[in-house]
Design a protein around this nucleic acid. Sequence first.
DNA 1: AAAGGGACCTGGCTGC
DNA 2: TGCAGCCAGGTCCCTT
Length: 344
Amino acid sequence: MPELPEAETVRAGLATHVVGRTVESVSVLHPRTVRRQPGGPPELAARLTGRTVTAAVRRGKYLWLSLDDDQALLAHLGMSGQLLVLSGDAVAGVAALRAPGRPAAAPFLADRTVADLSVTRPPSTVRTISTTTAHLRARLGLSGGGELWFVDQRTFGHLLVTELVPTGDGAPGGHGSPVPALPGPVAHIARDLLDPALDVPALVSRTRRRRTEIKRALLDQALVSGVGNIYADEALWRSRLHPTRPTDRLRPAAVRELFTHAAAVMREALAVGGTSFDALYVDVDGAAGYFARSLAVYGRAGTPCPRCGTPVRRAAFMNRSSFFCARCQPLPRRPAPDQRPAGR
DNA sequence: AAAGGGACCTGGCTGC
DNA sequence: TGCAGCCAGGTCCCTT
């Protein structure tokens, strides 16, 4: 699932390969992809065509390409989205693959992966070209040849051209941003854990003022952004915190440590190319190398906790799952005296 | 007002 | 073997 490290990997690829180029054509292949765009596909095309990309920026899981007219192409990858940059040759190759009368090319090309197709290295590389083109939702023709593809199997992701609005605090709007502005739909998204301008003491304070469970807080993009279900479970395990611990009963040091661990997990994923902790891979034996060594608890119900050997437990959480070690991450029945800050 | 829960979506997997 | 049903999850929106 695309979380912060995957989004940052994509942003870096866009910064290298798309900034400075002009959008020459726009083709929307699935209307749901532009469901947030007032006016739909025609409006998206009208606002985008002829615009030159000036920057690739990210906050949390949101990505955007700043344009030369104070607008931005905003993208969210949702559950399964990919942004691929194709060379002119790759576009021609795919066209040949799909053309009638050229079936001989199909078996070879169809078995190639997205990594063979894209100029950038996508976070997930096991999907074949035939699978990728089946889920192609929008394509942008770029100056100099080549295309930018938005591929999204489950269509939770979206694209939107919108105005950039000032943030008010004068600080950069996110990674890669040269301007203190954010797309409107991102205005309510908090700074993420890898943002140099993040105020950690203020974040700890705001977290402890919440009256909710710690995992819910960790996933609240208005509190701190970029953390999804997988990294949340891994960070809670490293911090030895049960996911349902009440935020207002955690000591400041424990909350600070949790955010430190969450940032560390995401930095580690980023260091290996933003490779996704995709749940699908967890169960795929052949692809288990990196994932099996990296995931302590997520998707590993019944397997031994790497720290103490106790079988990892799975619990229902917000219509999905939490994975944790019941021994390393105990849930206190009532708050211990040393869990309360003095004077409260 | 803050917090919680459901809807949205597709395809792989499970079980009958 | 075929097919119905379950499961995965990020964000928006509605209810409490």
